[in-house]
Simulated scan of single mutants.
Amino acid sequence: MPVTSVEKDLDQLTITVIADFAAPVTRLWDAYMDPRQLERFWGPPSYPATFFRHDVAVGGRSVYRMTGPAGDEHWGCWEWTHVDAPRAFEVIDWFADESGAPNTGLPSVRANFAFEQTATGSRLTTVSRLDSLVQLEQLVSMGVLEGTREAMSQIDAVLADLAEFAASRAAEAQILSDTQVRVARVVRGTVEQVWRAHNDAELMKRWLLGPDGWTMPVCEIAADVGDSYRYVWEPDGGGEGFGFTGELLESEPPHRAVTSEAMIGMDFPPTRNELTLTPVQGGTLLSLVITYANAEMRDAVLATGMTDGMETSYARLEGLFEANVSV
């Protein structure tokens, strides 16, 4: 078990957990940066976690749900207050509802995660600070210490699974809920490059084409929050095309953008698309959480081969990076 020490300091109102791993610091760091990996160990085995949002930037938020054996759901939220890759990050962690709004009846925790290299791999020291002795004891009585030990005992298996999260893997879709899907891929490029690739119309026309045989004659970018965008694709040589339109709802360059999306000429409810870019070993983790109106719409879109088309586009983008195209 990786946890080597757990100390409760009643004077400082802290709980300190030290864990050692036979893996490099960058590998351990990435496990916390990537929601696909983090949700494999953030909750104990009987309360697995699902992350619906994970913004690795100061001011960002992460929203997660832990589901118990009886189907009971427990929500939490992080507010990111400090990021110093790959050495440390700090978050305020609170119990929440599914929107991320805090449950004020339960204690919030200011948690500092410090990563360091050791002779045999890496060490993670987590210091959780409470506001009062009552809060600290309340947290302990809820079984947090035991849950933390159980949760962190799962990290070794995640760290050993190098192939599952390698930059060479294609884009994959993961169903998060009845209405939400996360498409994730490590793109071999910097966060700044990948952000610009999503916000430069001429560049987008060169890579965001899906399968071969299509062109993108219309690419109208939404530059500011509240602006509308419009994308249209047509087959080479002419023929019937298709397109999407929507609004830029949130923008935090170069890490996060949220848009609505509706298919032009179709009477389907719009989706909400949350794009997050996170630097990881091997490039940039691109995570796109799509929220549909219902499960039927979700399944219908996935059945079109959407993920395969996205993979073709991302591979084409990497080709531009490798060819030293100015991005």
Rank of each mutant, 00 (worst) to 15 (best):
V3L: 13
S5A: 15
E7D: 14
D9Y: 11
L10N: 12
Q12R: 14
L13H: 08
A19C: 09
A19D: 04
F21A: 09
T26N: 15
T26E: 15
W29H: 06
R36K: 08
R36Q: 14
G43K: 04
P44D: 02
S46M: 07
P48Y: 03
P48K: 05
A49N: 08
F52T: 01
R53K: 15
H54N: 11
H54S: 07
V56R: 09
V58C: 07
S62P: 00
Y64S: 02
R65F: 01
R65D: 08
R65A: 06
T67N: 04
G68Q: 03
P69D: 13
E79C: 11
W80Y: 12
W80Q: 07
T81L: 13
H82R: 13
P86A: 07
P86D: 04
A88K: 14
F89V: 00
I92D: 09
F95Q: 04
D97F: 02
D97K: 05
P102Q: 11
P102F: 03
T104S: 12
L106R: 10
P107L: 11
S108R: 01
F113C: 03
Q117D: 10
T118D: 09
T120C: 12
S128E: 13
S132F: 01
Q135E: 15
E137V: 03
V140N: 07
E146D: 14
A157W: 09
A157T: 13
V158Q: 00
D161K: 12
S168P: 00
S168T: 15
S168M: 03
A170V: 06
A171K: 00
E172P: 04
Q174K: 15
Q174Y: 10
I175D: 14
I175G: 03
S177Y: 02
D178I: 13
V183M: 14
R188G: 10
G189V: 10
A201T: 14
M204R: 10
W207H: 06
G210N: 08
P211C: 13
G213I: 12
C219Q: 12
S228M: 07
S228A: 08
S228Y: 05
V232T: 05
P235F: 13
D236S: 11
F242Y: 15
F244Q: 02
L249I: 15
R256A: 11
R256N: 02
T259W: 12
M263E: 08
G265N: 05
M266D: 10
F268K: 13
P269H: 08
P270E: 09
P270G: 14
P279Y: 02
V280N: 02
T284L: 02
V289S: 05
T291Q: 13
Y292L: 03
A293I: 09
N294M: 06
N294P: 06
A295F: 10
A295S: 08
R298H: 06
R298N: 01
L302S: 06
L302F: 06
A303D: 06
A303V: 07
T304E: 13
G309D: 08
G309E: 05
G309R: 06
E311F: 00
S313Y: 04
E322C: 01
A323Y: 07
A323P: 07
N324T: 09
N324V: 02
